[in-house]
């Protein structure tokens, strides 16, 4: 698993780090600049950037190899590969978070956001970004088996849309939840949103792993090229 994480991280750093970090930096700085660090805007922008990062990570654009490639061309177990990809995605989100943390800290101090809510916001970002990555990976490796497909974005779009439309699901929509926390002060739903994200993430990872669990070489969802 460490090999997967390390090689993917190296590949990301060499090929795409400049671009992704710059997008995070510019996105947050721009909106922070024009809104005088309004916390709800900053964290919503952070979430959108996290979704974008997760999607690209799940599409494996910046990885040294795809999930299927690791499974079929190495001796690694499918479960290890799926977990390694998820950990890499989470680690990548964390690195981006670390890079823009000064602005977020400034935001918290500036607006008086309490530390418990601030930490929960960071956890929400990590889980939603990893979930986006897992959904994209599931769509790209299991549902379509295509390297570039619109379905990855479509899945996360459906997820966001459904959770925004239906009132009962709104508590797990990160953008709605951030709006609720910062404009209405309803901080109680944050924990359940994080837990829901983790549960969905585990489910998606399981769904990704199940087709490959019986062993290498058995092509269940089409031949890997």
């Amino acid at each position: 698993m460490i090999i997967i994480i390390w090689s993917d991280l190296k590949d990301w750093y060499v090929t795409s780090a400049t671009r992704t970090l710059a997008v995070f930096l510019c996105g947050l700085a721009f909106f922070g600049f024009i809104t005088d660090l309004r916390p709800e805007i900053s964290f919503q922008v952070l979430t959108v950037l996290g979704l974008w990062l997760g999607l690209n990570c799940g599409k494996e654009k910046w990885s040294s190899a795809r999930l299927q490639s690791y499974i079929y061309n190495t001796t690694l177990k499918p479960g290890t590969v799926v977990a390694g990809k998820a950990v890499f995605s989470c680690l990548l989100s964390f690195l981006h978070l670390l890079f823009v943390l000064p602005l977020l800290l400034l935001n918290a101090v500036f607006s008086g956001v309490t530390w418990d809510v601030f930490l929960q916001m960071l956890a929400l970002f990590l889980t939603i970004s990893t979930l986006a990555s897992a959904l994209a990976s599931f769509a790209g490796n299991v549902l379509t088996d295509a390297k570039d497909s619109l379905i990855e974005g479509f899945l996360i779009g459906v997820y966001l849309l459904c959770t925004a439309i239906f009132p009962t699901l709104q508590s797990i929509n990160p953008l709605v939840e951030i709006h609720r926390v910062f404009t209405l002060g309803a901080t109680k739903g944050l924990g359940s949103a994080i837990i829901s994200n983790i549960l969905i993430l585990v489910t998606v990872l399981m769904l990704t792993w199940i087709p490959y669990r019986s062993g290498k070489g058995e092509m269940k969802y089409g031949q890997y090229q």
Partner: peptide, 13 residues
């Protein structure tokens, strides 16, 4: 905000 982002941008590029 501007100084921080410009410095970060400079380092990156």
């Amino acid at each position: 905000i501007m100084a921080w982002s410009v410095l970060g941008f400079t380092l990156l590029y």
